[in-house]
Design a protein around this nucleic acid. Structure first.
Length: 507
RNA sequence: GGCCCGUUCGUCUAUCGGCUAGGACAUCUCCCUUUCACGGAGGAAAGACGGGUUCGAUUCCCGUACGGGCUACCA
């Protein structure tokens, strides 16, 4: 390994960025940073008709939020620009031509209808989906079966064509995957994949090989779903740039649906009620909306931590890692081979742990934004942070703070007096009136409030227990929240008095 | 159908031939808390199956079964 470590991620901008994608980026990033290398972001806008600039921006925003920004990309620049496939079109065409000239690829003029007819014709019970392979290509309309003159005529007439790779008839194609070890494919079982489409754009197969070479990629990470097409890429490397220059491959295990089986899809989020995208995402084509982890109230540190553990661990029992720790400890040898079902409950647990260990000032602003979006504008940041500190142990998502802390700023709309009505009497009413009247007009500390409360209860022969729940319900509205006297201290005497009186009227 | 990959508690996983199979999430019980959480203690819960190799297999090999991925002019 004498090449500088250089990895890349190549998202399709129209697909958003979901769990599997973020994890691939993350492993790329961790590996590059660990080895002092670079992380490049290339955009797979192969289908120009669907290319949307805002969707590309979305990818960058997600990576920025996650803290795994690329060193080089269409927005960051760098020595291997351009980074959008659409802007590299001519480069791919040149390599496709080179392959055709060398007899390693060929022009194919078959129309969609002709391909469909072929599939119908050769379809059998044992072979439901006939492939355009070494046998079939002899019976199709391409530069292998047509004479040179005819091919030239078609070409000069502007007949649409694609370039297909010519798979060898009998060859074992093997390579060593960094995660799976040696993998062998037989060339006869792989079809003649399209390399260059009729619109002149490359398919992923050509683009990935050409760009990995030109961008000097040393290690290539991608999902396991790409494993079956690896032989095409290996062959392309052999033909174009030499196997000795090929990056090392790592095929990552898939992230699976929590229920049943299969790859986690965008749909599963809606169906099961959890996010699958890093941030809120609107499909540019269908306008379908999907919520993101960020908007659901996840801290990026927790999101990244959770994703890192879905397919890797350091061999110890540690589960909470900072990104720096992940970089230091990440190793491909410890990446798992089998897919992992996504567990939203565990994801929330990670977030709860991160909220607990993070100082509130780090996310106070985010929470205040959430409050504001629900119509509660925070005026005093100092008390706001005190409140967050008080309730943070009860929150697993940033959006939980609203329900847990709302009553500090506005009196509860509904007060659950039913819970205490049954055992209520005039003596209790008198107790509360007397207690509140006896309080110092300015601020009182929680301990002082508690002492005076207990003292008065004792002189009036009440058990403190009979009065604590009523006080809580008066101030909070229900049976939840942190210590009552902490609440009373923070909301201040006038507000405390008001809430008590309001509740007494209801009783 | 074909090819490829995989298989330890419900879920995520540890184990690189010696295992009373460990941890975490979820679940259950108890404790703490004059609320709800947090926290603490404990319980139940796993090596797909069949053959080898070996003194000894969860671990290595081979079959079988099951699961997944791919099988487009999508990535």
């Amino acid at each position: 390994m004498n090449k500088k470590v250089r990895v890349r991620f190549a998202p399709s901008p129209t697909g958003g960025l979901h769990l599997g994608g973020v994890r691939t980026v993350l492993y790329n990033y961790l590996f590059a940073k660990k080895h002092g290398g670079d992380f490049i972001l290339r955009i797979e806008d192969t289908d120009q008709s669907r290319y949307v600039a805002s969707a590309e921006q979305y990818i960058f925003d997600c990576l920025k939020w996650c803290g795994v920004e690329p060193d080089e990309s269409a927005v960051h620049g760098g020595e291997f620009a351009p980074y959008r496939q659409s802007e590299r079109k001519a480069i791919y065409q040149q390599y496709a031509e080179q392959l055709v000239k060398a007899g390693q690829a060929y022009y194919a003029f078959d129309t969609t209808e002709e391909l469909e007819a072929m599939r119908q014709q050769f379809k059998t019970h044992d072979n439901p989906t006939p492939q355009y392979n070494y046998e079939i290509r002899e019976r199709m309309k391409n530069s292998l079966t047509l004479g040179d003159a005819e091919v030239q005529t078609l070409l000069s007439a502007g007949t649409p064509y694609v370039v297909r790779i010519k798979m060898p008839v009998n060859e074992d194609i093997k390579f060593t995957d960094m995660i799976r070890g040696e993998v062998v494919f037989h060339s006869a079982l792989v079809d003649d994949k399209v390399l260059l489409k009729a619109d002149g754009m490359p398919t992923y197969h050509l683009a990935v090989v050409v760009d990995d070479h030109l961008m000097q990629i040393s290690h290539a990470f991608r999902g396991e779903e790409w494993l079956p097409s690896a032989p095409v890429h290996i062959l392309l490397w052999k033909y174009l740039f030499g196997l000795e220059n090929m990056p090392q491959w790592a095929h990552l295990p898939l992230i699976l649906k929590p229920d049943g089986n299969g790859k986690l899809s965008k749909r599963d989020g809606d169906r099961l009620g959890f996010p699958v995208f890093a941030m809120d995402w609107t499909d540019p084509k269908t306008q379908e909306k999907a919520t993101g982890f960020r908007e659901r109230g996840f801290l990026p540190e927790a999101f990244v931590n959770m994703l890192a553990m879905l397919g890797w661990n350091d061999g110890t029992e540690q589960e909470i890692f900072t990104i720096e720790e992940l970089i230091a400890k990440f190793s491909l040898e410890r990446v798992h081979k089998s897919g992992a079902k996504f567990d939203y409950e565990k994801a929330k647990w990670f977030n709860g742990e991160w909220i607990k260990k993070t100082t509130v000032s780090r996310f106070a602003f985010l929470v205040s934004e959430d409050f504001a979006s629900r119509g509660l504008v925070i005026q005093n940041n100092e008390t706001f942070e005190k409140v967050l500190e008080l309730v943070k142990d009860r929150c697993t998502l940033l959006t939980d703070f609203y329900d847990q802390a709302k009553f500090f700023f506005v009196a509860p709309e509904s007060v659950d007096v039913d819970s205490i009505k049954g055992k209520w009497n005039d003596e209790k009413t008198d107790f509360f009136k007397e207690w509140i009247a006896g309080l110092a007009p300015v601020e009182s500390k929680a301990v002082a409030l508690e002492a005076s409360f207990k003292e008065l209860a004792a002189t009036k022969n009440f058990k403190v227990g009979e009065l604590m729940l009523p006080l809580r319900i008066m101030l909070v509205g229900g049976k939840f929240g942190p210590g009552v006297f902490d609440i009373a201290e923070l909301i201040g005497k006038p507000e405390t008095e008001q809430r008590i009186n309001k509740a007494l009227n209801l009783l």
